[in-house]
């Protein structure tokens, strides 16, 4: 078991996450509020209720979840794509870790983000 390796990738990704914290948080918050403002003013007044739930209570959690999932998928794929693009993937490829472990360590990060995002975007 190459636990050190998995931890190293996890630490690295978390470090990158902290470094890009502000852009990582600001972008989804801004896009979500734009979405809410534009659609809310365009069609919000015409929508009274959906299945007995008021429009606001329906759309706000929906948009939040949407941005959380997009962010997490975007980050996991970016974490793999970026090293491929710059060439640094060579090191991870030549490391004594099975593939599934490398992937899970890389994608563990969006999970961490998922749990940290809601508090700030709500």
């Amino acid at each position: 078991m190459n636990l050190h390796g998995v931890l190293a990738i996890y630490k690295f990704e978390m470090h990158r996450f902290r470094r890009t914290l502000w852009t990582g948080l600001a972008v989804p918050v801004i896009t979500t509020s734009l979405y809410f403002v534009v659609f809310g003013s365009a069609i919000g007044s015409r929508m009274s209720e959906i299945n007995g739930i008021p429009y606001g209570a329906f759309i706000v959690p929906g948009l939040m979840m949407l941005s959380l999932f997009t962010e997490s998928i975007f980050n996991a794929s970016f974490g793999i794509h970026m090293p491929r693009f710059t060439g640094t993937i060579y090191e991870i490829l030549s490391a004594p870790c099975p593939r599934w472990k490398r992937c899970s360590a890389m994608s563990a990060r969006p999970r961490a983000r998922r749990s940290s995002s809601p508090s700030s975007s709500s």
Partner: peptide
Amino acid sequence: LVPQELTMDVFEPLISTVSFSRELFGRR
């Protein structure tokens, strides 16, 4: 392996990339 091309995570501090490499290869 020291590859032919200079590829590195340009935003990382030097010491943390080097320790990252060590741990990635399963060393304490």
